[in-house]
Structures are given as C-alpha cells and as structure tokens.
Computed example of a mutant assay.
Amino acid sequence: MKKTMMIALDFPTQMDVNTFLDQFPYPEQLTVKIGMELFYRYGPEAVQEIQNKGCSIFLDLKLMDIPNTVYAGMFQLAKLGVDYVTVHTLGGSEMMRAAKRGLVDGSREANKKVPELLGVTELTSISQMALTNEQNCSLTMNEQVVSLANLAKASGCDGVITSAKELNDLVEQVGDDFDYVVPGIRSRDDASEDQKRVATPEQAREHGASAIVVGRPITQNEHPYRSYQKYDDEWNLKKRVD
C-alpha cells in the first residue's frame, strides 16, 4: 500500500456524495471510504457510481459473523472491484481466513484484482476504560491491539485499522511488512468529537502509518477541497505555494 489518504464519505444520500466529489478537480486521484450508511441504502450502485468518477474504493463494512457467512459475503464484495475491505479481528482466525478465501475466489470469478483485507482492531471510539469495564479485557489498549494485529497477520489479512497511539508497538512487534490504516485523524485546530484516540497526519506518518482516513474535517468543511489539500500537505509533508 502506498502512502494513501482516504476520505470517509459519511453522507446520507448519493446526491450529497456527488455534490461533494464534484468540488474536486481530479476525483480519479482520490481514495474514498464507503461505510454502512451509504452501502445499506444504495448497495453496490453506490460503489459503481463512485467508481465511475475514477475514485479508488475502501468499502468499510466491518464484517463479523460465522466463517461460512463471511466467506459468502466477501465472495460477493470482491466482485465489485473495490480496493480495500474490512473484517473485525475479534471474529477470530477462522473467520478471517474465510474472509480471505472469499475475496480470492470472488475476485477470480469476476476477473478482478483481490481487494486488500484489513482487520479492525479496537475502534478509535473505544477508551481504555471501555476496554477494561465493558469488554472485560485485562490487557492494556496497546497490548490488545498488538495481539489482534498479530492474529490478523497470521490469518491472512494484509493490514489492520488502528489508532496512531498503537503504531510504535505495532511496527516493532508485528512488523513493517504489514499495513496500518489510521482513522481518527485531526489537525491540531480541529475538534476530536466522538473520537477518543486521535492524531495529526504528521504524527501518524512519523509513527509508521501506511494510510490515514479523514472524514468530517473535510466533508463538513465549508471549503472541502481546500481542507483536503491541507490534510494532504500535512500527510505528505508538502509545502504548498499559493
């Protein structure tokens, strides 16, 4: 995975998505994340319409079910020609291996490239208190994320979704031959909102992130393309001359 910045298209309608993307002069250069809200309303049509604009697609549905069901789901998703998909690592190694087989088999049938399989570790909205008191996990957040990432790697995933706070331990204990996609990205002057474990683009890059995901700071900004450029500059360490 090249160093990629992804935009989370957390909009309720396809019209909102089109209005947003129309503000970008080169949508074919974008990697965008489609989540549950859009996909549950429009299904594969949402993917196809955005692909028609040239965007690369991160389809973030976070599958978690028995292995056979996840295999069947991934088999179908692979036919859409998306670039990245997600599963919950807490579903276990057998489920993740089934997810990978589904992607390989579905891609082969549709003559598509196999999407990259990313395992969700702990959501960036989960705090240490929630991990301890609600999930009844005795590990620290870093220990839990590293454990789940190692399981994901051993089970055929290509990378994990993680906060930047765990990146140092992940690179050291899981390896730099694995992809780390970091949501919860905020510049220093943006509010963290419901995210508990946030980082700036520079911090994520410095600690070994392969890609970052930015949502509301871009999609809800009065000038989304300008905001995108700011985040892209910070992520790629560019100095823009206006």
Rank of each mutant, 00 (worst) to 15 (best):
I66W: 08
K153S: 10
N136P: 05
T31V: 03
D232N: 13
K33G: 01
D232Y: 13
L151W: 02
E193M: 03
E116N: 11
S210E: 09
H207S: 12
K53V: 03
N111E: 15
E222K: 10
Q23P: 00
E109K: 11
G91E: 10
E45Q: 12
M15V: 11
H88Y: 12
K2D: 15
R97I: 06
I218F: 07
D169W: 00
N236H: 15
K62M: 06
E94C: 06
E49Y: 00
E37R: 00
D179I: 02
G91M: 11
A46Y: 05
K100V: 02
L117C: 04
Y231T: 07
F24A: 06
L77V: 13
L131E: 14
A154K: 11
S93A: 15
G92Y: 01
A99H: 14
A164S: 12
G43A: 02
T89L: 13
N221T: 07
M129C: 07
T121W: 04
V85I: 14
D16F: 00
M1A: 04
L151M: 15
T140Q: 00
E172A: 14
Y26W: 10
P67W: 05
A46E: 03
A8P: 04
V213Y: 11
H207C: 13
V213S: 10
M95N: 14
K3D: 11
N133C: 13
A130R: 12
M5K: 02
A209N: 04
P183M: 12
D60A: 07
A149Q: 12
P67C: 14
T124C: 09
L117M: 14
V213M: 10
A209I: 04
V174L: 08
D158W: 01
L80P: 06
D242Y: 10
G119P: 02
T200C: 00
M6W: 01
D169K: 03
V214C: 10
A211T: 01
E134S: 15
A209V: 01
G119I: 04
Y42E: 12
M141K: 10
S192F: 14
N136D: 04
M96P: 08
L77E: 08
G215N: 02
N236M: 07
V104H: 04
E222Q: 12
M1W: 06
D242Q: 13
E94K: 15
S192Y: 11
E45M: 06
M36W: 13
Q173L: 15
S138A: 14
R41A: 12
K100S: 07
R205P: 01
L77T: 05
R186P: 06
T86W: 08
Y180H: 10
P224V: 06
I185K: 09
H223A: 12
R240P: 03
F24H: 01
Y42P: 03
R216C: 04
K79I: 01
E134T: 09
L148S: 02
Q14F: 05
G81W: 02
Q229C: 00
M36G: 11
N236G: 03
V214K: 08
T13M: 01
A152F: 09
K33D: 02
R197I: 11
Y84W: 12
